[in-house]
Deep mutational scan, measured.
Amino acid sequence: MASQGTKRSYEQMETDGERQNATEIRASVGKMIDGIGRFYIQMCTELKLSDYEGRLIQNSLTIERMVLSAFDERRNKYLEEHPSAGKDPKKTGGPIYKRVDRKWMRELVLYDKEEIRRIWRQANNGDDATAGLTHMMIWHSNLNDTTYQRTRALVRTGMDPRMCSLMQGSTLPRRSGAAGAAVKGVGTMVMELIRMIKRGINDRNFWRGENGRKTRSAYERMCNILKGKFQTAAQRAMMDQVRESRNPGNAEIEDLIFLARSALILRGSVAHKSCLPACVYGPAVASGYDFEKEGYSLVGIDPFKLLQNSQVYSLIRPNENPAHKSQLVWMACNSAAFEDLRVLSFIRGTKVSPRGKLSTRGVQIASNENMDAMESSTLELRSRYWAIRTRSGGNTNQQRASAGQISVQPAFSVQRNLPFDKPTIMAAFTGNTEGRTSDMRAEIIRMMEGAKPEEMSFQGRGVFELSDERAANPIVPSFDMSNEGSYFFGDNAEEYDN
């Protein structure tokens, strides 16, 4: 993207840094990872977990959730003011799984939030270390993106479920800051804005008074975040219109849905970061690795190297396929839920299948599930090659597409044709070009129609051997075009429920 120079890199967003050079960025990201790792080690000690239990991804998720809940100030305040039966607002906890007599047992633990905050700050040299908290939120978000298709949420806001490739980060909490905003897809931002506008339509006082002023500035800020994701002048001009509207209503909703559809071809720039579970960072720190000293990046080879040398386990339900569970977590670790499966298959070195073909449910185990038949197995999170994460949407291309997802959002900077089903997408653009945004709409449609099938995206960008740390010898991959490109292809993934 041309304006790259004016933006802070995501590592800076990730670490609240002012302008830093590459070495400083690597050190501050490393410091953040160190903090998460030290916190995780301490929690495993508190909970008396064995090494194996500490490497269980379900335990990692519970521990991450506990610290996120302990620092969720708004919710904590709300819980104190609106006490609900049987919930102690000062405590947080969740299921911890232990191996007892050759069987997995679930144990519900409860801790004072104050105590968890103390352990977290102690692991982070006394700081609140917001960057580390956001990092864990993005890992949870990436896992949700890989596990669930947001059909219901899309339909509720009037969008087409086939636009799911635009929904990265749709389950990120509001408090995820600049680093969170960077990884949100165009569809996620559109959905947040539509929800806001709908509230304004239904509630006369939404934009009024002292609160209304705050609401208005939040609305304009979200519009600017979305505008910054678009790469064409016409899309940005249309966002200006939406932002400046005196009284946002149905016309703005129409414009936003139009823009979301246009992003299936004229893709937005959305950041991709490899955020790993805390149970990967903990053992690495415990083994003596100093992330701050060595430096770390979320968008280069580092996460690949770390996963190459990590042992992570997962509980497996009786009829689940461990290899499929591994694929789910591998995609989440690489922030690749909406990437082209052919690119992923090449990088991973084994075939990556669409969601609907995987015999696996989510990673988390519900409290009512029976533990008797639970097994555990090693997650295979290694890769054959590594590639640089991208934040450009890439230019655009036609490809055989599917009944489910009709476009992709690249996660890796790797040369390819970008699949999208042009006739299906263009069919949504018939007729409606009147109104105050008509010239911009016409211009956007013209650009979409001009998108050429034979153009290559990320020209000359390749993948790298894991021994090639400096990215000196790019390998331009070859793809098996007979395979499906979309992950949520004609899909039956479970729906995400809060």
Rank of each mutant, 00 (worst) to 15 (best):
D88N: 05
N417D: 08
G37W: 10
D34N: 05
R461L: 06
D72Y: 04
L264K: 13
E81S: 03
A366F: 10
M189K: 13
N224G: 07
R243Y: 08
P83I: 12
M448D: 09
N483K: 15
T62P: 02
R446Q: 14
R8G: 01
S326K: 11
L56G: 07
Q149K: 12
D340G: 12
N492V: 12
S353I: 14
T424S: 02
F489A: 10
L466S: 15
I301F: 13
A123L: 01
I475P: 04
S217I: 13
I96R: 14
K325H: 13
S9P: 07
R208Q: 06
H82G: 13
C164D: 08
E220P: 11
Q4D: 03
I197W: 08
M105N: 04
A411R: 00
Q311P: 15
G17W: 03
W207Q: 07
L276E: 12
C333E: 13
Q398T: 14
R246A: 13
R400V: 02
G485F: 13
E449K: 04
V476G: 08
F412S: 03
L418M: 01
T92F: 14
K351G: 04
G126M: 09
K357W: 11
F206S: 12
Y219K: 10
F479D: 13
P283R: 01
T147S: 06
S335E: 09
E465H: 10
Q58Y: 12
T62G: 01
L259R: 15
N417V: 15
G30R: 04
M426Y: 13
K293Q: 01
I57V: 05
L226E: 06
W386E: 05
P453M: 07
M159F: 08
P173N: 00
G180R: 08
T350W: 05
F71N: 02
W207P: 03
E24K: 02
I63H: 03
N142Q: 08
A131W: 12
A2D: 10
E494N: 08
G393M: 10
M159L: 15
I365N: 12
F420L: 02
R121V: 01
R213T: 09
V299R: 08
K273H: 09
N21M: 00
I96P: 02
G490D: 11
K90E: 03
P322H: 12
T378V: 05
L108W: 10
Q58G: 02
M222V: 09
I194A: 14
T134M: 10
Y296C: 08
R236T: 05
E14N: 14
N334Q: 07
E11P: 04
A181C: 05
E24R: 02
M456T: 13
D88Y: 07
Q231S: 01
E292S: 00
C164N: 15
G185K: 08
A286R: 01
L47K: 13
A442Y: 01
M440G: 05
N247P: 09
I119T: 13
I197S: 03
R55Q: 04
E64M: 13
L264N: 14
K229E: 13
G300D: 06
R74K: 15
V343Y: 12
D34I: 01
G435M: 11
Q235R: 14
V363I: 05
I41V: 04
D468A: 15
W120C: 05
L49E: 01
L344G: 07
R355I: 10
G37E: 15
S245P: 01
T15R: 09
I257H: 15
L47S: 02
I257K: 12
T350S: 14
Y296D: 06
Y487L: 13
G86I: 13
L379G: 09
Y148E: 11
G393I: 10
V414Q: 03
G490A: 08
P423I: 08
P173C: 15
G93V: 05
A332Y: 07
T378I: 05
A22R: 01
I96D: 10
N492P: 08
A442Q: 01
D255M: 11
M456C: 15
D127G: 04
